[in-house]
Design a protein around this nucleic acid. Structure first.
Lengths: 138, 138
DNA sequence: CTCATTCGTAACTTTATCTGTTTCGAAAGG
DNA sequence: CCTTTCGAAACAGATAAAGTTACGAATGAG
């Protein structure tokens, strides 16, 4: 698996939190919707909380809330919250200083990849939680 | 490691092949530039050959050639050749049919991710091998 | 105050993937 | 014939993700 499900699970979790914003939702309830373990859900929610997208409360009647209106949270924000910032894209081996390609290719590719990631994020930012809720089958 | 170095290594390999298109380059030589094992290089080259981007010849004076002019190969083409098509983005667990979010979120996210990937590819396609060679330090 | 509930987090297992390596057969040519 | 070189399988080690167990800390109900 050269990837992970954190982004889609995080989006799913956020969508559940939107369903009825008045209710404090427990990780146990969300785990039922996502069909996984509550600790897995709490791990994702911890990342979302670190990014300021959700708030949490412990104890009885505790659980999670969205920190923003559904129209203020887009998919790019969710992706940034749960995606690993420094994914390995270059071999850890040092470049061969004798080879002209080796000497110069990294900054060129770094720039290209950075532009590509920005384009990807821009596209994800077009979809907001409010759009997802509007399009769901009831 | 939630990722791999195949794309950057593949781009590096292609750039080496461009250096002098008259020469048939061995995986051993390329491995020296990339600073890794020849078998690793051949694995990447096998993917590039499957995509039709390079040709190979066995035996003495054997090795690899680009199948197209450097101006006809862009980074998106290289990425498509070596990237896993069906990366895991959804949890393998079945959706919970009782939950309205669970029932409807996958197609919505699938579409959003597909648009985002298209935007990423479009950006990568702007850089061609000829651009990379033109920008290298000699 | 006590106790049940719930989050926060660490630790561990299982599984999957990537990279590197060894090995060997097949093709190609000197 | 024999060296070179690719093609591909097989394996080890490292890393990461997902799931699970466990337990402490916070919170509020009674």
């Amino acid at each position: 698996m050269a990837g992970n499900c954190r982004f889609t699970v995080a989006a799913h979790i956020c969508a559940v939190l939107v369903l009825d914003p008045r209710i404090t939702v427990t990780s146990d309830f969300i785990a039922g919707s996502v069909n996984t373990n509550p600790v897995v859900v709490r791990r994702i929610l911890a990342a979302l909380a670190r990014a300021g997208l959700v708030t949490s409360k412990r104890g009885q009647a505790g659980g999670y809330h969205l920190a923003f209106a559904p129209s203020e949270i887009d998919l790019a924000r969710i992706a940034r919250a749960v995606d690993d910032d420094d994914r390995l894209v270059f071999t850890p081996n040092p470049p061969n200083p004798v080879c002209p390609v080796s000497r110069s290719i990294r900054p060129i590719l770094t720039e290209a990849i950075s532009h590509a990631e920005r384009a990807r994020e821009a596209e994800l930012s077009k979809i907001r939680l409010s759009d997802i809720i509007a399009r769901r089958r009831m």
